[in-house]
Design a protein around this nucleic acid. Structure first.
Length: 438
DNA sequence: TTAGCCTTGAAG
DNA sequence: CTTCAAGGCTAA
């Protein structure tokens, strides 16, 4: 078993891919990007891109476009506040504890990956190499402060840690909005980059960190698996439901802390989520494939991969057609090279659906829909020459997503009728909600 | 301007 | 005391 004592330093700089030299301005970066970021912020430098604001930044080309380099610095999560206005040397800043937590998280992640890798090898699972040395931004303070929200754990595993009391019984009915922590999350937004609409940046900031999702879901899955292994073989479908259930909790957590959504009354929040949960779930899976996935494999939220051929080999015709339609959509979005910004907009467009019946704050929801649509259009205008066509394609994908999600819900309903779905979880609550509204 | 190495100094 | 992420310096 390979062991590297210096866990942090074998990673690559998320900006340019060079060797990292330590934590700088919020995350692990190389020495040169540290210096570049410092010079840019200290001297209040303004750059302009001579190309189309999407220059590749790597070790050999990082000097060519400072504009895109700085943009990337901000995008991966380097923090302006960490550059000191008074230029005081030495000492520590408020990020110290965050660095410490991040180190612990990485350590834990590494152990998890080793455990997951060895225990899944016989089952055809593998671990995505890009995710072992991540290219996603590091967790920020706001994510670290978020408590681990897994109330479903309570119902499925009663012996587990106690969860907050508001999560007893019906998961959504008496769920409360923690506005103070939500407000804190958006107090310091980076300055809008050239061409990227401020709202798009804001929506992107609401996106959870992929690595944290991985850690939480992988830990949960391993725990479940160890429990099952004592009593018999693990059931794949049951495991899938568990994973979907987990993803639903992440989704609810994302929504409740997101801009606009947190301003809504709980009743409207529930209606919106009940309406679009399956779309958001699929969009989440699909965006993961487009952004990080590899061909002919399904990348799970846990960071594990499953061969598509393996799924198809064991699936019913209904499931096979679902998988194929999903793959077509992945392919389409992949060709379009849809990025995180656009996916973030698409998530909000899906969530803020003004067609939902009996909304109390219908006007507001319609406004949000229009604002996000406008921001997405503006964004495509900056990033694509054939922006109208691109924008139309993206909306078309959303409508395909809608019909796909309806098929998926039908599939789940059939499965549930045959009592294959484990009951008493958020997935089933969502499945039933749409039909049981007054 | 860049990027590797140096100095500093509060936190642990 | 040690640590290590800030800022500083300087040759290329």
């Amino acid at each position: 078993m390979e062991y590297t004592p210096d866990v942090d330093l074998d990673e690559l700089c998320p900006v340019c891919g060079d060797k990292v030299s330590g934590y700088h301005y919020g995350l692990l970066t190389c020495e040169s990007c540290k210096g570049f970021f410092k010079r840019t912020v200290q001297n209040n430098k303004k750059y302009t891109c001579a190309e189309t604001r999407d220059c590749r930044i790597d070790k050999t080309q990082r000097k060519r476009c400072p504009s895109c380099r700085f943009q990337k610095c901000l995008h991966v999560g380097m923090r302006l506040e960490a550059v000191r206005a008074d230029r005081m040397r030495g000492g520590r800043n408020k990020f110290g504890p965050m660095y410490k937590r991040d180190r612990a998280l990485k350590q834990q992640r590494k152990a998890l990956m080793q455990a997951a890798g060895s225990s899944h090898d016989q089952q055809g699972f593998s671990v995505h190499p890009d995710l072992v040395s991540p290219r996603t931004p590091l967790p920020t303070a706001q994510h670290d402060d978020m408590r681990c929200l897994l109330p479903s754990l309570r119902c499925l595993l009663p012996s587990d840690l106690p969860s907050p009391s508001q999560h007893h019984g019906n998961y959504l009915s008496n769920w409360t909005i923690n506005s103070s922590s939500a407000a804190r999350a958006y107090t310091s937004s980076p300055p809008p980059g050239p061409g990227v609409p401020a709202l798009v940046l804001e929506l992107l900031r609401c996106d959870p960190d992929e690595l944290q999702l991985q850690n939480k879901s992988a830990a949960r899955l391993l725990q479940e698996q160890s429990g099952w292994n004592q009593h018999g073989r693990l059931d794949t479908f049951r495991l899938t439901c568990l994973l979907a259930d987990q993803m639903l909790f992440f989704m609810v957590d994302w929504a409740r802390t997101s801009i606009f959504f947190k301003q809504l009354k709980v009743r409207d929040q529930m209606k919106l989520l009940h309406n679009c949960w399956s779309e958001l779930l699929l969009l989440d899976i699909i965006s993961r494939q487009v952004l990080y996935g590899r061909e002919d494999r399904l990348l799970l939220v846990t960071g594990q991969e499953v061969e598509l051929s393996e799924i198809v080999a064991h699936a019913s015709p209904a499931l096979i057609s679902l998988v194929q339609r999903g793959q077509n959509l992945v392919e389409k979005l992949h060709i379009l090279k849809v990025d995180r910004q656009e996916f973030a907009c698409m998530k909000f467009l899906t969530l803020f659906n003004p067609d939902v019946m009996e909304l109390e704050d219908h006007q507001f929801i319609e406004n949000v829909q229009e604002q996000v649509e406008g921001a997405l259009l503006e964004y495509t205008l900056c990033t694509s020459t054939r922006y109208l066509e691109r924008f139309a394609h993206l909306l078309l994908c959303l409508s395909e997503l809608r019909s796909l999600s309806m098929l998926a819900e039908e599939y789940l309903c059939c499965k549930q009728l045959s009592a294959d779905v484990p009951c008493n979880n958020l997935l089933i609550e969502m499945l039933h909600a749409k039909h049981s509204w007054p």
